[in-house]
Design a protein around this nucleic acid. Structure first.
Lengths: 155, 155
DNA sequence: CCATCCATCGAATAAAATTCGTCCGGGAGC
DNA sequence: GCTCCCGGACGAATTTTATTCGATGGATGG
């Protein structure tokens, strides 16, 4: 697992912006022959630098117009509970992201819901009803923007 | 913009899990001819249901081993300041995600850093030095997991 | 200086994307 | 009930792309 050179980083940046770039276009963009470019991409995949390729979907189009962040504080900070509640939170269909945090908040969970009733039921049935959970605080998400990792740093 | 049928949802789910699926494989998976499948995917793209395709990169491989959540509280809740600080936060290279929230916290920013020194400088230079910012609270992210939207709900 | 190694290249082959004319089935209007 | 119309699906033909593989050349280390 050698370090990433300039071309690797250009590939990563390009694929981060558009994962469906054809190998030919990608090769042209980074100034490599298609075959060489393909070899690099495959290496980046097997090395785990590229973890996956994902389509970014519009939540509203899927009938999920309401997003919230739920801060979770646990009752007992024992290893066992920590792992199981984390798995539980990650396994919820409404869960988009789970942060495991240091500080007073143990977990922060980003969820998507159809409406406020859905959110209400979710918080009760999947959060407060859990014995490990001491307290939650739900915040409405007005807007959410995500960007890629800064590929060009740390070279 | 008609509603999504079962096949549309299967396509979305498949592309959410692997955006680089070939159209042929995708067509086979959802039980459609390649040409029909392609037409649907294109429609989903132009309708904005599919917003983009992104490669998911490993932060550690890029030399970004430290992640944090920075909760930002603003001094003035005027429209002008709200927009400009939001743009500022989104434009930072270290920023991975920005949540605009209701509640005492106005913004929650997920950042990636090389090390603690990088984080220290970032919080000072890009957050607390801003006049609109009243107070920030930084939490270390021990782990972070993301999953896709629940495509099969709300049909 | 020579041998070696690794990444690149480019041509050949295999596979996939894309286009387009056609067909089928459901719904509206007569 | 019948016919026209429309949208989606099909599949063959064509274009484009991915993938493989042997050869080349520069850098490295002995």
């Amino acid at each position: 697992m050698s370090s990433l050179d300039r071309i690797d980083r250009e590939i990563l940046e390009a694929l981060q912006n558009n994962a469906r770039l054809s190998n030919k276009e990608l090769a042209a963009k980074v100034g490599l022959a298609p075959s060489s470019c393909l070899a690099r991409v495959k290496r980046l995949e097997t090395d785990g630098v590229i973890r996956s390729y994902r389509a970014d979907l519009d939540a509203r189009s899927l009938g999920l117009g309401l997003q919230a962040l739920i801060a979770v504080q646990l009752r007992l900070h024992v290893g066992e509970a920590f792992g199981s509640i984390g798995d539980h939170l990650r396994s919820l269909p409404e869960t988009v992201a789970v942060y495991c945090l240091g500080g007073t908040t143990d977990f922060l969970v980003h969820v998507v819901c159809r409406d406020t009733e859905h959110l209400r039921v979710l918080t009760i049935e999947s959060f407060t009803s859990r014995p490990e959970v001491s307290r939650i605080e739900t915040s409405l998400v007005f807007s959410f923007a995500r960007s890629g990792l800064p590929v060009d740093r740390g070279a």
